[in-house]
Simulated scan of single mutants.
Amino acid sequence: MTISAEAALAGVQSVIAAYAHAIDAGDAGAVADLFTEDGVSEIAGQGTFAGRDVIRETYGAFEPQTPQLHLVGNTVITSPPGEEVTATSDLVFFARGEQGWAVQLVGSYEDTVALVDGAWQFRKRVLSFR
Rank of each mutant, 00 (worst) to 15 (best):
Met1Ser: 09
Thr2Gln: 07
Ser4Asn: 08
Ala5Glu: 04
Ala5Arg: 14
Ala5Val: 03
Glu6Leu: 12
Ala7Arg: 07
Ala7Met: 12
Ala8Asp: 11
Leu9Ser: 05
Leu9Val: 02
Val12Trp: 01
Gln13Thr: 08
Gln13His: 11
Ser14Met: 11
Val15Ile: 06
Val15Thr: 04
Ala17Ser: 13
Ala18Cys: 07
His21Ile: 03
Ala22Leu: 00
Ile23Ala: 08
Ile23Leu: 13
Asp24Cys: 10
Ala25His: 02
Gly26Gln: 03
Asp27Arg: 00
Asp27Ile: 03
Gly29His: 02
Ala30Cys: 12
Ala30Arg: 03
Val31Ala: 01
Val31Ser: 00
Ala32Lys: 05
Ala32Tyr: 09
Asp33Val: 03
Leu34Arg: 01
Leu34Gly: 02
Asp38Val: 13
Gly39Glu: 06
Val40Leu: 15
Val40Gln: 14
Ile43Gly: 06
Gly45Cys: 11
Gly45Phe: 09
Gly45Asn: 07
Gln46Leu: 15
Gln46Phe: 13
Gln46Asn: 13
Thr48Ile: 11
Phe49Leu: 11
Gly51Ser: 10
Arg52Phe: 14
Ile55Trp: 07
Arg56Cys: 01
Thr58Tyr: 07
Gly60Lys: 11
Ala61Phe: 10
Ala61Gln: 14
Phe62Arg: 06
Phe62Gly: 02
Glu63Asp: 09
Glu63Gly: 15
Pro64Arg: 10
Gln65Cys: 04
Thr66Cys: 04
Pro67Arg: 07
Leu69Arg: 12
Leu69Gly: 01
His70Phe: 05
Leu71His: 03
Leu71Ala: 07
Val72Arg: 00
Val72Asp: 00
Gly73Glu: 01
Gly73Cys: 05
Gly73Ser: 09
Asn74Lys: 06
Asn74Arg: 10
Thr75Cys: 03
Thr75Arg: 01
Thr75Asp: 00
Val76Ala: 05
Ile77Pro: 07
Ile77Tyr: 09
Thr78Asn: 08
Thr78Ile: 04
Pro80Asp: 15
Pro80Ser: 12
Pro81Gly: 05
Val85Glu: 05
Thr86Leu: 05
Thr86Ser: 15
Thr88Trp: 06
Ser89Pro: 00
Asp90Ser: 12
Val92Tyr: 12
Val92Cys: 15
Phe94Leu: 15
Ala95Val: 15
Ala95Cys: 10
Gln99Gly: 10
Gln99Thr: 11
Gly100Ala: 02
Gly100Tyr: 04
Trp101Gln: 02
Gln104Ala: 08
Leu105Gln: 13
Gly107His: 12
Glu110Met: 07
Glu110His: 14
Thr112Ser: 14
Thr112Lys: 08
Thr112Ala: 10
Val113Asp: 09
Ala114Asn: 09
Ala114Val: 12
Leu115Tyr: 02
Asp117Pro: 11
Ala119Ile: 11
Trp120Cys: 00
Phe122Asn: 00
Lys124His: 14
Arg125Thr: 06
Val126Ile: 15
Leu127His: 13
Leu127Lys: 14
Ser128Cys: 10
Ser128Tyr: 10
Ser128Pro: 07
Phe129Cys: 04
